[in-house]
Every structure is written in structure tokens, then in C-alpha cells.
Design a protein around this nucleic acid. Structure first.
Lengths: 198, 198
DNA sequence: GGAAAGTTTTCAATATTGGAAATATTTTCG
DNA sequence: CGAAAATATTTCCAATATTGAAAACTTTCC
């Protein structure tokens, strides 16, 4: 039980995590403007070309850790007991997993601010969200036996869940409500599941 | 009735439209790789610096016309009779407006392919979508008297509508269904409005 | 007509992107 | 273990994209 991954793979993971973490904390302490590929690479002790081998830019590096966690959401849905209705799985997984994914509220608010200020940051964030949504669509299709390329249902489920997630995250970060995060997303999910129409 | 806009404004609009159109048709005929700010500017007969005064890159130029049309969707919802329930407005506006927005199906499929292949294109497309969603949120909040910064409802409506739109667009472009586009989005909207849950 | 305001162009400085070869590290296998 | 193969990293560099500033040009308004 020494290791699950070969050393080389572990090093790659470590390098990526170190770069992402350095970019993230540099943004928190000094602001996004003072984060550059060079500074991040220097902080970690690799060449700036290596930084580019991992990330297209600092925005991608900053968002990476969050993106990784977000992708695990879909996998957690996939790990629910077989036969459980999709919406029940979402109701179980999302409220429980969200606090860990979002981390500290003030830090997340800083990120959200950066995202809203910078188009490149917005793009990065949206791409990460979209990838998570696609993965969730595939997982749901696999669980229901639907064809992910043709059927509406998995896409509508995944779209609704993503909407609930994004809405909860934003209101929570802005402190627009006193509800704890799990309750907030439960509320969003419930309203979508019961039908948003008249 | 000579003109609604001053000459200068009309020229700007014309230049922007010409650049966007040149970028778009160049992508259709020669592929995205052969589209550059220089080639587009040359095709229109302006300097490449002028291209950059209008667009940050070719991706933005390509998507621009579609983005403009997409933004009008929210305005069309805002123009519905006061007092009409939000979901009814969406059901009226989206199916009717979508064919004009999406244009030719084969052309749209090419765009979708480019979007899926290229991260920068994906980013551009997602940004445009997100802007539309935000505008729709604001319009809905204005119509219902909700506070767009704090209330869940407008965001959930707009998110659901956007999900329906994106889902319809993708399946339609992929020819995954024989349903006409208006019927497709009506189906998506209906299923979301009736509740997606168990 | 001519001043004011706005747009486009030219040009230069800077940043970003991505390739290729040299170097270092890890893994595989005899 | 030790050599060979596979993979990562680094250095160097050229092509391209982006940005800023000021000059040249066009439109607007009086």
C-alpha cells in the first residue's frame, strides 16, 4: 500500500497542485493583477514553460482546484446506489458535497469578484462549469440507460442541477441569504423538481 | 425618414457587421484555422487595428451576430404584455424567436463543431450565453418585482429557460430529432415547468 | 467654413503562444 | 543492478497576438 500511482504520475499531480495553489493564494494575498505565469512558476520552482505545459494561463491555474472538485460531483452521483431515482441522488449528493467544494466563503467571494471583473476569468469559470455539466449529463444518462447524445432527459436534469448549484453559490457568496449552503441548494433543487411553471 | 441613426453610428454598425460577417463566412468556407484578424480586416478593407477596436479576437467576431440576436431574446420577453405570467411569456417568445436566431441548421452545426473543438471558441460562446442569461434574469426580476440580487425565483426561471434553449439548440444542430425547433423547445420548457422531479 | 468630437490608421513596444532540441528523471526489462 | 526506453522539464527562439500613443482623417455642429 505504498502508492496507487507511479512516482511520475504523483509528481505531475503534485506539480499541478503546487502551481494551482500558488496561483490561488497569490491572488488572495496580492490581487489578480500581480499574478503572472512567471511569478507562479518561480514560487513553485519550475520554469515558466513548465507552467504553460500545465495551464494555458493564470486564470486556468487559479480555477483548477475548484474545477477538479467540481468534477468529482458528477462522480459522486455516479456512486449512488443503483436504482435510486436520479433526482433523489442529486438531493443526496449536492447539499452534502457543496460546502467542501466551495471552501471558505470569503475566499470564494474574492474569486467571484475576480470572475465578474475579468472576461478571461469569467471564460475560465464558465468552461469549468460547462465541463462539470457535461460530465453530469453522461453520468445521469448512464444511470438511466438513456442515450446521452439524443435524449432530452439527462440534459434537462443536469441543466437544472447546474442552475441550482450556480444560483446557490452566487447568493451564498454574496451573503444574500442567511440560509446555510446545504439548505439553500436543497431549496433550489426542490423548487425545480416540483416544477417552476404556473 | 432618411435615417434613424447619424451617419457615424451607421458606419460603425456597418463595419462591425461586415467584420463579423467576413469572419463567419471565412470560417464556413476555409475553416477556423485560416481565419485571422488580418485576413478578416483585409477582406473588409480596414486595418487590422480597427478589427481589434471592435473585437478582442476572431472568435468574438464570429460569434458576435449570434450573440446580438441572443440578447434580443431577453428584450422580447420584456416586451410581453404586463401581468402575463413569466412562464407563459417564455413559452410565447422562445419557440417563436428561436428559428430566426439560430439561422441555417448546417451553418449552426459547423459553429457548434468549432465551439466543441476550440477552448477559446467555447469560452466565447459560453460568455455570450451567460450574458443572455443574466439579461433574462434582470428582465424577469423587473416583471415580477423581485430583487434580482437576492431572490431565487428570477434566477431559476432564467436558468431553466437557458437550459431549455441550449438543449434544444444542440439536439437540433446534431439532427438528433425530427421535431422542428419550436416544438423541441416547447417540449423542453414544458417538462421543466411541470417539474423534473419524481 | 471651421472648430470640436469621434474614428481609423500607422507604428512601436510588449506579451503570448507553441515548436524543437537538449537535458534530466523515471520506468521497464534483461 | 544497469542499460535502454519512455516521459518531463528546460532552454532557446521564432511567429503571432495584443496594447498604447499619436498622427491623419471623417463627421457633426455651430
Amino acid at each position: 500500500m505504498t502508492s496507487e500511482l507511479p512516482l511520475r504520475e504523483r509528481k505531475k499531480v503534485a506539480t499541478r497542485a503546487a502551481l494551482s495553489h500558488a496561483a490561488w493564494s497569490s491572488m488572495l494575498s496580492d490581487g489578480l493583477d500581480s499574478v503572472s505565469p512567471e511569478s507562479v512558476a518561480a514560487a513553485v520552482g519550475v520554469s515558466s514553460r513548465t507552467f504553460r505545459n500545465y495551464f494555458a494561463g493564470v486564470e486556468e491555474a487559479i480555477v483548477d482546484e475548484l474545477a477538479q472538485r467540481y468534477l468529482t460531483l458528477a462522480d459522486q452521483v455516479g456512486d449512488r446506489p443503483p436504482g435510486e431515482p436520479v433526482w433523489e441522488s442529486l438531493m443526496q449528493v449536492l447539499p452534502a458535497a457543496l460546502p467542501a467544494i466551495m471552501g471558505d466563503r470569503d475566499d470564494f467571494a474574492v474569486l467571484l469578484q475576480a470572475v465578474n471583473d475579468r472576461p478571461t476569468m469569467l471564460a475560465q469559470n464558465l468552461i469549468m462549469f460547462e465541463r462539470g455539466r457535461q460530465r453530469l449529463t453522461e453520468v445521469i444518462a448512464a444511470r438511466t440507460g438513456a442515450n446521452p447524445a439524443r435524449d432530452l432527459t439527462p440534459r434537462l436534469y443536469a441543466g437544472a442541477a447546474t442552475t441550482a448549484l450556480a444560483t446557490s453559490a452566487e447568493l451564498w457568496a454574496r451573503r444574500a441569504t442567511d440560509l446555510p449552503l446545504p439548505d439553500l441548494i436543497r431549496t433550489c433543487l426542490r423548487r425545480l423538481s416540483e416544477g417552476i411553471g404556473p
